[in-house]
């Protein structure tokens, strides 16, 4: 390998993506070439320094502005049947009054039929659901633990499978700093464990969780699901020296009972 080839491979080297053969040739050349060694060392220093640049946080105003924009877009996108109807009427200013009255009567019947068919009620339900979803998601992102717990409680208001709320709850189980929030989120997700993505995420988190309380809660929630991956994770836990004795014992008892 010569100096030019080294310079072509530097980027992969800095990212530790050189394959084994290249890595050997790279190192051999570096050992014998002071110029390349110095240059690569400089680049490595800069590259490492870049990773240390702290990531800045935007202000909370950005989030508020975004959701306000999203909401106004949704309102604007909604069809406004009544306004459109009046606009259409204005196109025909010479319609005799009797005919206009007839049209009005017909429109009334149509609107009545629509209400009877439940479309408006469904629309209202959808709006309430969307509002409760936004409140839940917003609460789950608050800094205060009690607010996030309120968010988890609020999620129970969603009677149907709401993907965004479910993902926010999964995030809470996996990444929330508070044990209490993680425990509450596990409880809230129990009805959805039949959904494969939810189940898979919980199993993954069980392998990573370090709080014994949360471990036991996850184990109890997952045990009833009887998935192959769940059982495998539990078996690994039952022999994992890093898991505290009481949790290991709990897992073993459950596994023995299941046999």
């Amino acid at each position: 390998m010569n100096c030019e080839e080294i310079s072509e491979l530097v980027y992969d080297y800095l990212n530790e993506r050189l394959d084994a053969d290249c890595a050997v040739s790279f190192t051999v050349h570096m050992d014998g070439c002071a110029e390349c060694r110095e240059q690569v060392s400089d680049l490595q220093h800069t590259w490492t320094g870049l990773a240390d640049l702290p990531q800045e946080e935007p202000s909370s105003e950005l989030k508020a502005r975004f959701y306000s924009m999203l909401e106004s877009q949704q309102v604007a996108a909604k069809p406004r049947p009544l306004a459109t109807w009046f606009q259409n009427l204005a196109v025909f200013p010479l319609i005799p009054q009797g005919l206009a009255a007839g049209v009005l009567l017909f429109a009334g019947i149509l609107i009545g039929a629509q209400i009877e068919s439940g479309e408006n009620v469904d629309e209202l339900r959808r709006e309430v659901r969307s509002l409760s979803q936004r409140v839940t998601l917003s609460l789950l992102q608050q800094d205060s633990v009690s607010e996030r717990l309120r968010g988890v409680r609020f999620s129970y208001q969603s009677a149907v499978y709401d993907e965004e709320v479910i993902i926010a709850l999964i995030d809470a189980v996996g990444y929330d700093k508070s044990v209490n929030v993680r425990l509450a989120a596990i409880d809230a997700l129990k009805p959805y464990l039949s959904q494969q993505p939810v189940l898979n995420s919980m199993v993954t988190f069980l392998g990573k969780e370090r709080s014994p309380l949360v471990q036991v809660s996850l184990i109890d929630a997952l045990f009833g699901t009887n998935g192959g991956e769940t059982l495998e994770t539990l078996r690994v836990m039952s022999n994992d020296a890093q898991v505290i004795d009481s949790v290991r014992e709990h897992v073993r008892t459950l596994l023995e009972e299941s046999v």
């Binding site: 990531q55 950005l62 989030k63 975004f66 959701y67 999203l70 993902i167």
Partner: peptide, 13 residues
């Protein structure tokens, strides 16, 4: 359009 909220959460920072 509501899904844009999830993309915002993932990418705005």
């Amino acid at each position: 359009n509501v899904r844009l909220g999830m993309l915002f959460e993932r990418h705005h920072k």
